[in-house]
């Protein structure tokens, strides 16, 4: 998948120690739909909850499966400082 393609997050429940390949197989995702560099990220390892960064279309499809949830927003984040003046100031 292209580095410039907008992405969203999905989550999936898998056994502890799961790998990206396991998640892609479970959710029937292709390599070009998944940010493989980002990989499979444990969100709550105690609860077997993992996240993937995928294309929006793939997220909508995967999110319909009972063992997955999403799409979730992946908003931009920025430092809180120094405070920038408002344009009308």
């Amino acid at each position: 998948m292209s580095a410039d393609e907008p992405t969203v997050l999905i989550t999936v429940r898998l056994p502890r120690g799961a790998r990206l390949r396991d998640a892609m197989d479970r959710l029937e995702l292709d390599r070009d739909e998944v940010d493989v560099e980002y990989g499979l990220v444990p969100v709550d390892p105690d609860d077997g909850l993992y996240a993937l960064r995928v294309t929006r279309a793939a997220a909508v499809r995967a999110g319909q499966r009972p063992d997955a949830e999403g799409p979730f927003a992946d908003p931009r984040i920025e430092p809180f400082g120094p405070p920038e003046p408002r344009e009308d100031d």
Binding site: A3, D4, P6, T7, L9, Y38, G39, V41, P42, V43, P45, A51, R53, A73, D74, P75, R76, I77, E78, P79
Partner: peptide, 24 residues
């Protein structure tokens, strides 16, 4: 975290998904 290069953001921002990975 805020030096993510994805999606053509500014020099100093990132994506929340990078924070998910950082917390992991």
């Amino acid at each position: 975290l805020l030096r993510s290069q994805r999606r053509g953001g500014s020099a100093l921002d990132g994506l929340l998904s990078d924070a998910v990975a950082a917390f992991a």
